[in-house]
């Protein structure tokens, strides 16, 4: 079943065409990776999918409903959650309170929100840090807070924007494990933008590759890794032959 469908999305900033005519389909339960070199338009596409940018042309459908013009909090009510590439924790609130804000999406009662938040904190491995101020956490901790907050809204679709970027290798492993569990155990559909290939290759069912604002390839991790256009986009023209050979 198709959960998210983007049709012919285009976004231009002034004269610059950041995303040109890109269509994306995401099936329920899938984990889709979105990669591409710097400036490829990943984040712009991602921001259109999550409702932060309105596309210049094109539409986005969530479970068949046109969400192109909805406000961000309205898409959240429908069941879409996201994290931010540059983390945006509620710095002056405790880790627990951060996650409770997410949990209030589904309840009006403080106690229920608290229980839900504690459960999610346990899931992402932040239970013992629950009383710390969010601003005092390491980057890895802040990324986990973002994950936990988004998860606490009980989304059907989770959009992850470079959630492992900037983490050390052991933190990367930990977060990869959490994302795998979110997708496989909690049955949440995930679209993730990522630069860290280790993460994207290990997790994705399907990968979409972008370059210069266009979609240049789509397929399983193996297919994409062997696609000459992708290799060219990442390594340049001269490398294509040797990489294939």
């Amino acid at each position: 079943m198709i959960i998210l469908e983007a049709k012919k999305l285009t976004k231009s900033f002034g004269g610059l065409m950041a995303v040109a005519d890109v269509s994306v389909t995401v099936n329920s339960g899938e984990l889709v990776g979105l990669i591409g070199p710097n400036g490829a338009g990943k984040t712009t596409l991602f921001n259109m999918l999550s409702g932060y940018y309105k596309p210049t042309t094109g539409e986005v459908y969530f479970r068949g409903q046109d969400i192109t013009k909805l406000k961000v909090f309205e898409t959240s009510d429908l069941g879409i959650a996201r994290t931010f590439q540059i983390v945006k924790p509620f710095g002056k609130m405790t880790v627990l309170d951060n996650v409770m804000v997410g949990a209030f999406a589904k309840t009006g009662h403080k106690k229920e929100a608290r229980d839900k938040a504690l459960e999610v904190l346990d899931f992402v491995g932040l239970f013992n840090a629950k009383d710390n101020l969010a601003e005092s956490m390491t980057l890895g901790g802040k990324k986990r807070i973002e994950l936990a907050r988004a998860l606490a809204t009980e989304p059907e679709l989770l959009l992850l924007d470079e959630v492992v970027a900037g983490l050390n290798p052991s933190e990367v492993k930990g977060v990869i494990e959490i994302i795998r569990k979110i997708c496989k155990d909690k049955r949440v559909t995930i679209v993730m933008v990522e630069h860290v290939m280790q993460a994207i290759m290990a997790l994705s069912d399907r990968i979409i590759v972008m370059n210069s604002g266009r979609k240049i390839a789509e397929g399983t991790p193996e297919e994409v890794a062997n696609n000459p256009e992708v290799i060219q986009a990442y390594l340049g023209r001269g490398m294509t032959k040797s990489a294939r050979g």
């Binding site: 999550s50 932060y52 406000k71 961000v72 909090f73 959240s76 009510d77 959650a81 996201r82 931010f84 945006k88 924790p89 509620f90 710095g91 002056k92 609130m93 309170d97 804000v101 997410g102 999406a105 907050r149 988004a150 809204t153």
Partner: peptide
């Protein structure tokens, strides 16, 4: 409180 800390993040959580 979430709004006072970060409005964009608050919106993304349905506020």
């Amino acid at each position: 409180s979430a709004i006072g800390n970060d409005q964009d993040a608050a919106e993304s959580l349905g506020v």
